[in-house]
Amino acid sequence: MTAYPDAPLVVVQPDPRPHVVSLALRGDLDYDTGDGILDAVRRALSERGDARALLLDCRGLEDIDSTGLSVLLQVHRLAARREIGFRLENTGPALERLLTVTGTLEHLTSPAPALPSAETAQTASESPGSGA
């Protein structure tokens, strides 16, 4: 549960580096909040046409379910399509465990260079042992 139900789920954090969009996720990322969070990330990205890297700070993230993971995959794909680098930051043990079990840790956390298309971005993340 979120401590403040009306508080925004996605907060834009100031970042000194140019072309970097840093977003902090707050509260639960699940079936109920997924669509809202995805929309918020989309909005934040479209407001920054110069973005070259998208950082998702997961420090404030509480529960995440399968819909939440689907949202992270969607955001990753969104970034790859726009040739924006994507990184998850401050992933806690629960999130890391989910990403490990689902075999998506490497896909979502490998440093993503600026890539021409989603296809290449995802291929690049494939490597031996990614399913471990």
Partner: peptide, 13 residues
């Protein structure tokens, strides 16, 4: 172990 099905272009198992 392996990757989830339906999103990644290539999966491992």
């Amino acid at each position: 172990g392996g990757s989830l099905i339906g999103v990644l272009p290539r999966i491992t198992s």
